[in-house]
């Protein structure tokens, strides 16, 4: 966010190099994890057909109302890293005479993302009062009390899952 501020009054606090570098560093640290989470969430939305880099950035920009902007050149190292870690896999397809690389979540990636989302949701809920607002998490989603894994309550209702697939906690009883 701070990097996007190109014009400011010279006497403003942002004009101080120390202040600016501190905030930039803070934002960069905070955004690093959130960017990965957001990128994976957008990819999850395209779990059937996959999504290519440019489309992903555009969607991210639209979904976050241009608040979370990943620099174009830095997206691909992130995607490559996630692919190497087995969280994503890719498929090459020819479109308009050009080859595009479509990214999809692996089974492991799906599970990891559920956990990341669960942890982020619970964390945001917990720290929200400190920021002066409150968050109410949706009732139809169950969060594992042991590891904060996000679990779809419908799958519970269908009796598909009895244990948290991240930490192995027996959760069937907790839902009743």
């Amino acid at each position: 966010m701070m990097r996007n501020v190109k014009t400011f009054r010279p006497e403003a606090l942002i004009g101080l190099q120390e202040f600016r570098s501190f905030v930039e560093s803070f934002e960069s640290e905070l955004l690093r994890g959130i960017s990965t989470l957001s990128v994976l969430s957008v990819i999850q939305k395209h779990s059937q057909e996959g999504i290519y880099g440019y489309q992903l950035l555009k969607e991210l920009e639209t979904e976050t109302r241009s608040t979370l902007v990943i620099e174009e050149g830095t997206l691909y190292p992130i995607l490559r890293k996630l692919e190497k870690e087995g969280i994503l896999f890719s498929e090459k397809r020819d479109t308009k005479g050009r080859q595009r690389k479509y990214y999809l979540l692996t089974e492991r990636g799906e599970k990891l993302l559920d956990h990341m989302k669960g942890f982020f949701s619970k964390l945001t809920e917990a720290i929200a009062p400190l920021m002066g607002f409150e968050i109410e998490l949706p009732k139809e989603i169950f969060y594992c009390p042991n590891c904060a894994n996000k679990i779809n309550a419908k799958e519970y209702a269908d009796g598909e899952i009895k244990f948290c697939n991240i930490c192995g906690l027996y959760i069937e009883e907790l839902l009743k």
Binding site: G53, Y54, E72, G73, Y76, R98
Partner: peptide
């Protein structure tokens, strides 16, 4: 090669946009 191809594909997408 794949990395550079992907960056190039992105540039064409952006340019078309």
């Amino acid at each position: 090669r794949e990395t550079l191809d992907e960056l190039e594909s992105h540039i064409w997408d952006k340019a078309e946009d």
